[in-house]
């Protein structure tokens, strides 16, 4: 699974073994090179090298691409006192912790609705999945309109039921903007989690569910004591997957709010983009520093999350 990183000494040892493939005759290096070479070339040139270069760049001021100026750790010192960066990290963390809980939670509930033998299951599953296929650009444009103060459906509906007082500038109010964006995120991804959860529920052993039925276990009990524990690996996986994806969030924010108002929706991605390409600061060194630090944060978080969630799983089973 993406997001699941091998851990523990045995996993490390396995890395240096020759693999589990069935071909034991030992193919010639030429054949291996022809099969694996192109992929390694792409990986080296477009992933490994740029990664190393970004980290290298972070020690320079690069106003003029031909004459980078070595400044040591100065960028890192500046970054440590950068209020906007701190705000961006906080927003991104809120987003990556909260949104996956909602994504997976809503997805699971939807999957349970479809599992309760309702008509048109096939149609509903396909309809609910549609937002997953739309690009963030399209989603952002549509929701800019849906959130419109005067004629957006959200405010129109509040006014129609006499709650006009709740009608708000959803993206213009610094207290509401981040929540409004996360809401869209859940709208987009709930269908994805629904499909995965539904597949997992269908693959549960039916005897267990029948036994729960015989024990007169209500829906709440069945959910809490049977379904969720059995789905735990799937749910954790979905959570980690979503968590990693949210740490990269850019498109939605950039098109809808550009990080505003008052940095209330600034994420690390939008801040890097602003410093590198949108502001007239003409320096690629500082954004490279932000990217490098964030890279470290992502790696450490994923490893920690993985360790934490997996060890809990081990204790309980």
């Amino acid at each position: 699974m993406p997001g699941q990183v091998a851990s523990g000494p045995s996993a490390w040892r396995r890395l240096f073994q020759p693999g589990t493939g069935g071909d034991t005759s030992g193919a010639s290096w030429l054949v291996l090179l022809l099969f694996l070479g192109p992929a390694l070339l792409v990986f080296g040139a477009m992933i490994a090298y740029p990664m190393a270069r970004t980290i290298y760049d972070s020690f320079f001021t690069i106003d003029d691409p031909d004459k980078p100026v070595w400044i040591g750790l100065a960028n890192y010192v500046t970054l440590a006192g950068d209020e906007t960066f701190r705000r961006a990290v906080l927003n991104t963390l809120i987003w990556s912790v909260a949104a996956p809980v909602l994504d997976v939670g809503v997805g699971l509930l939807l999957a349970l609705c479809l599992f309760a033998k309702v008509p048109f299951t096939r149609f509903l599953r396909i309809a609910w999945f549609t937002p997953v296929l739309l690009s963030y650009v399209v989603v952002a444009i549509v929701w800019l309109w849906l959130y419109n103060y005067d004629w957006g459906i959200v405010n129109v509906m509040f006014r129609a039921v006499g709650l006009g007082g709740l009608a708000s500038a959803w993206l213009g109010n610094p207290h509401l903007a981040l929540g409004s964006l996360i809401f869209i995120d859940v709208w987009k991804w709930a269908g994805f989690n629904m499909v995965v959860c539904l597949a997992a529920i269908h693959s549960l052993p039916s005897e267990v569910l029948e036994a729960a039925e015989l024990d007169n276990c209500g829906w709440g009990g069945k959910l809490r004591f049977v379904i969720v524990p059995l789905l735990r690996p799937t749910l954790l996986n979905l959570y980690i997957l979503a968590f990693v994806a949210k740490m990269k969030v850019f498109d939605l924010v950039w098109i809808m709010t550009q990080g505003g108002p008052l940095w209330s929706t600034e994420t690390v991605s939008t801040y890097v983009y602003k410093r590198a390409f949108a502001w007239n600061t003409f320096d690629l060194g500082y954004p490279a520093t932000i990217a490098s630090v964030w890279f470290g944060v992502v790696i450490v978080t994923v490893l920690l999350l993985n360790r934490l969630l997996r060890s809990r799983e081990r204790v309980e089973f």
Binding site: A276, A291, W294
Partner: peptide, 8 residues
């Protein structure tokens, strides 16, 4: 995260 390769 894509930013780590973006600038380079």
């Amino acid at each position: 995260p894509p930013q780590i390769v973006l600038i380079a």
